[in-house]
Amino acid sequence: MSRVKYSDEFKAQVVREVVEKDRTIASVAASYDLVPQTVGNWVARYRKEHSSQEESEAVAESAQIARLRAENRELRQENEFLKKAAAFFAQEQR
């Protein structure tokens, strides 16, 4: 079985179909009469090369959200404790 060499422009066009037009790899592969594995490899390579900044921003944002949720949970617990302490000391003074 011989390997077919596709041009970079053709690969880019196929990848754009998947990435920009939100088509599935299988449907794009079928429309161009390609093996889905091949199209999947092209898309994976494209995403690996072009997603470093977007991915790092998403990871940083997720980390910040997790940190803020933990801080929020801790502050709620402290607030509940202070409410209970205030109620306890208010009863003692009576």
Score class of each variant (00 low, 15 high):
18 V>A: 01
45 R>D: 08
7 S>G: 09
33 D>L: 03
55 E>L: 14
67 R>G: 00
15 V>A: 00
39 V>D: 01
12 A>S: 03
39 V>Q: 00
18 V>E: 01
41 N>G: 13
4 V>K: 01
45 R>P: 02
40 G>S: 09
59 V>H: 12
67 R>T: 05
81 F>C: 10
83 K>L: 11
40 G>Q: 02
57 E>M: 05
49 E>A: 13
11 K>H: 01
58 A>V: 03
73 R>Y: 03
24 T>F: 05
9 E>K: 03
84 K>F: 11
92 E>W: 15
21 K>T: 04
54 E>N: 09
39 V>A: 02
45 R>V: 04
53 Q>S: 09
68 L>C: 05
17 E>T: 00
91 Q>C: 15
17 E>S: 07
37 Q>E: 12
79 N>L: 11
68 L>A: 08
16 R>H: 04
84 K>H: 09
62 S>Q: 10
15 V>H: 02
94 R>I: 10
48 K>D: 13
71 E>N: 08
40 G>R: 04
64 Q>R: 11
48 K>Y: 14
84 K>R: 12
64 Q>I: 02
41 N>P: 01
59 V>L: 15
46 Y>D: 07
56 S>M: 15
51 S>R: 09
74 E>T: 04
67 R>N: 04
22 D>L: 06
56 S>R: 13
65 I>C: 04
81 F>T: 08
22 D>K: 07
27 S>K: 08
46 Y>T: 02
26 A>F: 11
30 A>D: 12
61 E>H: 07
16 R>T: 02
90 A>E: 15
74 E>K: 08
66 A>W: 07
79 N>K: 10
43 V>M: 11
20 E>C: 10
29 A>F: 07
62 S>N: 08
30 A>N: 11
